[in-house]
Design a protein around this nucleic acid. Structure first.
Lengths: 398, 398
DNA sequence: TACTTGGTTGGGAACGTTCCCTATCTGTGG
DNA sequence: CCACAGATAGGGAACGTTCCCAACCAAGTA
C-alpha cells in the first residue's frame, strides 16, 4: 500500500493506492483521474504515513442546510419548500408549518448568492464617503442605514480616504456587489466621474450629497451652503468686523464655490469691498492651515475676522491663532461650517453653521429608494436643499 | 384587439390578444400561459390602450456581459474563457490576449455571486463596531481596511449603535454574506454571545477587539488597560492628589474591569485607602455624567481627582465641572482614556492614555487572515496586548 | 512504429436558488 | 356527467461561474 498526496488546485489531497507488485509503474497506472495527475504531476509527492492518520475528504466539509435537504427530509419538492420560504401563498398550511419548523431546526440560512444569481435583486445599497474621521460622514451613514434597514436593505459602506484611486476601486466593489443604488460624496481630488457614470449607464440609481458632481444629471442632496455662508459672514459684519478673510475650499468642489458665493454676496450687501488678497485658496489639507494663517497675519493690513470653509479648518485656525497670542474674538473672530462635535467643546467655542447631518443621509436614502422603485425619474436631477442654522458661540462674540 | 395587463409575480405585464368575435370567452380561451392566468386571475385587469404605447418585455433588460458572450464571440468554449479570467496558465498566449481584449471591450464584469456560489469563497471580511461617532472605531476600521485591501479582501462594515438587537441583526447579515472572517467589538449591553458563537460553529474565524467576550476561545486584540489605568492614576497620585474618584464602566465589559483593577492597583501601591463611595458605576450614557458629577461634589468629602473610563466621559465631566465654577486641575484633576481627537483641543486639554488605534485594527485584521489561512489555530485564544502611553496635558498639570 | 509527454481545448456537472408551466385532486353548478 | 374552479404540488430550466475529466494534436523518445 502506498500513500501519496497531490495538489489539486490549491489544497493537498491524500490518496492511497494498492500496488500488487514491486515494480515501476507508469503514471497512467498510478493515476486515479486520467489527466489530472498529469497536470498535478510536478506537485506529486510520495510518502508513507500510518493509515489511521488519514482523513476523509468529506469530513471537514461543513454542510450548510439547503432547500433540497428540507425537501428530501419532508418528502416534498424543493419548489414547495421555496414557495414557503419566499412567502408564496399557494401552500397548504400544514406543509408550511412543517417546512418552517424543519428550517428552524436545521438552522437553514438562505444562500443569498444563489438567490441574487437568479433574481438579480441584491437588496443592497452602497455609500461611498471620502473619510470618516470627522463626525459628519458617520452621521450621514447612520441616517442612510436608518432608512435602508426599514426598507429591508443592507448598506455597504466604503471610504475613499480622500483618494481618487481608492474611490474608483470602491466604485468597482459596489458594482461587483451589484448594489441597487449608490450614494456618493466624492473626494476633493475627483475630477473624472467615469467610475460613477458607469452606474448611470447600467441604470443603477445614484444620489450625490455634500460633495456633488454638478455635471451628472442625477438627484443631489445638499444644504444651502450659499445661504449658510451668507449668514455666517453677515453675522461677522453685524458684530462689527470690517475685513473678513476666507479660507476657500478647492475650486472643483461646488460646495466651495457655493460657500464662496455666499461670502461674496454678504460683503456686497453691506458694501464691503472684496479683497482677493484675503480670499485664500486652500486644499483642505489641515496641516497647511498654519502657514496660511501666518501668511494672513503678515499682511500689512491683516483681517479682523475669518470665515473658514469648514469646522476642522476653523478649529485648526483657532489653535494656531491662540498659539500666536492673538485674541479671539477681539483681534480676530472666527466662523466655521458644519457644527462638528468638537466645535462646542473647544476654547473659545466656535461659531458655526449647523446642518441637519443625519437628515441628509435620510433624504439621500429616500431618494435612492424612490429611484429604485421608479417613483421618480432617474435623470430628474432633483436637488434637495436642506436648511442650515447659525450657531453663535464665543469665537465671534465674547 | 383587446389589451390587458396582469400581474405576474411583482410586476404588471401587458399583453394583447386578437379576439375574432364579440362573445364571452373562457379564461382558457383568453389565457396565454395555461395556468398562470388562473393564478393571476384576481389581479387581471382589462383595459384599452393605444397600441404604440406598448413596450416590449425584453426592451428594458440591460444585459451584463458574461463569460458565455465572450466564448460565443470568439468561437471558443466558456471553459477556456474562464481559464483566462481566473489566471490558469494552461491557455495559449494568443487565446488569452484575444479573451482579455474582448473582455475589456465588452466591459466584462465578473459576477461574484455566481463565483461565490461555486467556490464558496467570498473574499470578504466583516467588522461590527458599536458606534462610529467617536474617532476610535473609524480609525480601527481604517487599520482593518488597510490590511484587508492588501490581501485582496473587501470589508463589510456594520455598526450596532450600542444596541444588542442591531448587533444580532448585523451578525446575521455578515453570515448571509458569508464573510470569511469577522472582527467584532460588542455593544455595552451584549451579554449573550450566541450570535457570535454561531460563527465559531461554522468555523468562520472571529477576532475580538476592545470590547471582547472573555468566555469565547478566540483571538483578541486589546490594549493594556490595566497598565494604562494604573499609570493614569499613578500620575494623579504623584501630582499630589489624595482622593481619586473613578467613573467606572459597566461590569459586563472586561475593559471596564481591567481599568478598574489598574485604578485599584495604583491606589494600593501608594497605600491610598479605597473608598467605594467614589467609585461610581456608570453605563456609558453620556447624559448621566452631569448627575454623577454633582453627586460626587455633594459628598461631605469630595474628590480632588477623577479618572474617567474614557475620553468622551472625561470631556463631558470637564464641561460639567467648568460650568459649576470648579477649577481644573487645582480643585479637581481629570484623566480620560483613549486620546480622542478632541482631548487636545478642549480647555483645559485633557490628560489621557493614548492607544495605537489604527494598529489595533491592523493587528485584528492580521489575525483574521492568519486564521483564514490556517496559520494559527482558531481556538488558540491568543491575546495581543498593545501598549499605551500617558499623555499629560492641562487637566492634571497647570 | 508505438508509446509518452506537453500544450491546449471542450463538454458538462455542480453550486443553491427562483419561478414557469404542468399535473393532480377535490368540489361545484348546470 | 361535464366543464370549470380552487388548492396544492412537482419537474425542470435558468442564473453565471468553476473545475473535473476527457480529448486532441504535435513533438519527442524508445
Amino acid at each position: 500500500m502506498i500513500f501519496f498526496q497531490l495538489k489539486l488546485r490549491k489544497t493537498w489531497e491524500r490518496f492511497q493506492l494498492h500496488l500488487p507488485q514491486f515494480k515501476t509503474y507508469s503514471i497512467k497506472e498510478l493515476s486515479i483521474f486520467k489527466n489530472t495527475v498529469k497536470f498535478a504531476k510536478v506537485e506529486l509527492a510520495f510518502f508513507a504515513v500510518p493509515t489511521d492518520n488519514f482523513y476523509s475528504k468529506k469530513l471537514t466539509m461543513r454542510h450548510q442546510t439547503t432547500i433540497k435537504d428540507i425537501a428530501k427530509e419532508l418528502h416534498i419538492s424543493k419548489s414547495t419548500v421555496s414557495r414557503v420560504l419566499t412567502g408564496n401563498p399557494n401552500v397548504n398550511e400544514e406543509t408550511r408549518k412543517a417546512v418552517l419548523a424543519l428550517a428552524q431546526k436545521l438552522d437553514y440560512q438562505k444562500n443569498i448568492f444563489a438567490r441574487n444569481l437568479v433574481t438579480h435583486k441584491t437588496n443592497t445599497i452602497g455609500i461611498i464617503v471620502p473619510e470618516f474621521m470627522s463626525s459628519y460622514f458617520p452621521k450621514v451613514i447612520i441616517g442612510v442605514q436608518n432608512i435602508a434597514s426599514k426598507a429591508g436593505y443592507n448598506t455597504i459602506i466604503a471610504q475613499s480616504n480622500e483618494n481618487y484611486e481608492t474611490e474608483v476601486a470602491n466604485a468597482k466593489v459596489m458594482m461587483a456587489n451589484q448594489v441597487e443604488g449608490l450614494i456618493v460624496s466624492v473626494t476633493k481630488e475627483t475630477n473624472n466621474f467615469d467610475h460613477l457614470i458607469a452606474f448611470q449607464r447600467k441604470e443603477i440609481p445614484i444620489v450625490f450629497f455634500n460633495r456633488i458632481c454638478e455635471d451628472m444629471h442625477v438627484p443631489k442632496v445638499v444644504v444651502d451652503d450659499y445661504d449658510g455662508a451668507f449668514r455666517a459672514v453677515e453675522h461677522l459684519i453685524v458684530t462689527g468686523k470690517k475685513r473678513i478673510a476666507h479660507l476657500a475650499g478647492p475650486d472643483n468642489l461646488s460646495i466651495s464655490r457655493r460657500r464662496l458665493n455666499g461670502y461674496l454676496a454678504a460683503l456686497r450687501k453691506y458694501k464691503i469691498p472684496v479683497d482677493e488678497e484675503i480670499i485664500i485658496p486652500y486644499d483642505l489639507k489641515i496641516d497647511k492651515v498654519k502657514t496660511l494663517i501666518q501668511q494672513l497675519f503678515n499682511l500689512k493690513c491683516p483681517p479682523d475676522a475669518l470665515f473658514a470653509i469648514n469646522d476642522p479648518t476653523a478649529i485648526e485656525a483657532i489653535q494656531v491663532i491662540k498659539s500666536m497670542g492673538i485674541k479671539i474674538p477681539e483681534d480676530i473672530a472666527i466662523v466655521g461650517f458644519s457644527n462638528d462635535e468638537v466645535s462646542g467643546l473647544i476654547e473659545p467655542s466656535l461659531t458655526t453653521i449647523s446642518q441637519p447631518v443625519q437628515k441628509i443621509g435620510e433624504t439621500a436614502a429616500d431618494l435612492i429608494f424612490k429611484l429604485i422603485n421608479k417613483e421618480i425619474n432617474p435623470n430628474s436631477a432633483i436637488i434637495k436643499t436642506l436648511t442650515t442654522e447659525l450657531i453663535i458661540r464665543h469665537s465671534t462674540v465674547r
